[in-house]
Design a protein around this nucleic acid. Sequence first.
RNA 1: GCCGUUGUAGUGUAGGGGUCAACAUGGGAGGUUGUCGAUCUCCCGCCCCGGGUUCAAAUCCCGGCAACGGCGCCA
Length: 468
Amino acid sequence: MADSTLYPTAYRTHSLGQIQTQGADLLDKEVTICGYAQAIRGKGKICFLDLRDGTGLCQVFLKQGLVDDDVLSSVQNTSRESTIQFTGTVAQKRAPKVAEGEPIPPTEYEVVANGVNILSQAATPLPLGVTDTVHVELDTRLDNRFLDLRRTHVNAIFNLRAKILQYGREHLISEGFKEINSPKIIAAAAEGGTNLFPMKYFERDAYLSQSPQLYKQLAILGGLERVFEIGPAFRAENHDTYRHLNEFVSFDIEMAWANDEDVMAVQERMIHHIWSSVAANDGKEIEAINVYRRTQEMEDIVVEVPSIPFPRVEYSDAIEMIAAAGQDITWGDDIEAHHADIIAEHHSGFHFIPRWPMAMKPFYIYHEKDETSSSGGQLSRGFDLNYGRDEMTSGGQREHRADVLTQNLIDVDLDPADFDFYIDGFRFGAPPHAGWGLGVARLTMALTGSRNVRETVLFPRDRKRCTP
RNA sequence: GCCGUUGUAGUGUAGGGGUCAACAUGGGAGGUUGUCGAUCUCCCGCCCCGGGUUCAAAUCCCGGCAACGGCGCCA
């Protein structure tokens, strides 16, 4: 595991995870370790201190006679979450008393201290308890995110988020995708610009990018064949829900010589790879979340690896399904949150919603003239991916015919001249291509059972929050 | 932005026109202990802001601010 590959640093010879995993080999050896003082027990002649670092937990044992009295009392008077460096010898921890019939826990290791260096004393009281079982409100947590992150289950959420990115990235690379980076400062207000954050670019007006969409397409036009980008997107929308943020990380791909079905297949293979890898490798993080959830009387989360292909519920069929449930909806209406609830009753996990009406999709989405609904409405090759009621992705095959692009812009009252930088790319030979954008935080919500995106974003930016 | 709800120790809650505002967690001091959700003793800490009604407001009313839930908005 990763622990055994950790090199010593200026401050420690071993991580706490290493003490536990390699304890048998380290017995009686002197080590130097560092961590946060999570719990301090004992004010008399002995003291136990639970030390935590990013790799695990280790008990440090101090006893009068083995350390100087002033060292012992300095540790006993340290506040929780202070950072401390200990030198000492590795020993087998004495087994805790267990009730009759309870299983005997596996052997653990501890460090019997002979030297102490308090690196940083934590102020008291803490704005939120790192190990306390009392509930803490999200607002308080976000105001004190640096402490909130030290909580085991919160830490686990971000470990899992990193795994999602790692597994997703490795899967795409295995399918021949190349990572790119597109500009986040843009000059033109693409698609009207009502949702863009304005900014100053030297003397000029500019905007923060709301999507890598047009740029990843230009990369495809440039012959890069298959590309992906994991990067921020900014939207100045006044929404205030559990699933919206004004800055979020989007996991985007674009692929040449492909249609919507092809990139849906890429996506379901990628998500399948992520879920099965987490199920195989990261049970520890899932368990950390469940340990917390039990203290809050919430149900355990389970990593159910979805089978592929994911169900496809075409837009027209979704409308019928919603109407059949008694809702007043007709072809051409948007599928709103309470409509998605009805679909989720039939498909609680991942499911695609392909073939949206062209009128509801942006100008760059591809359509075939002869693909229409039973009522004659023009269908598009745009799709969504939902997990339960929540939209994870929108994507589609892109329009690669320059003349159709121009007409599409006119159809939605945009001036084609504003999009010359984009359409120019299509005038000199363009491959049919398709792609999607996936919300990393929303996918992390789905994996970790979080009910608010803010839980899966380190420092979320919403309409009211711009700090920390 | 709309509708609804809520603002009480550091944190999370209970209560509620008139004793000393409660519980859990926490913080401080000390004692005991190979402890491990340590434990025991003692101590500490709170009614969002402004105005109004009232003999009396943390409690009722109005306004503000903030948060929460839902919705809308949304590439």
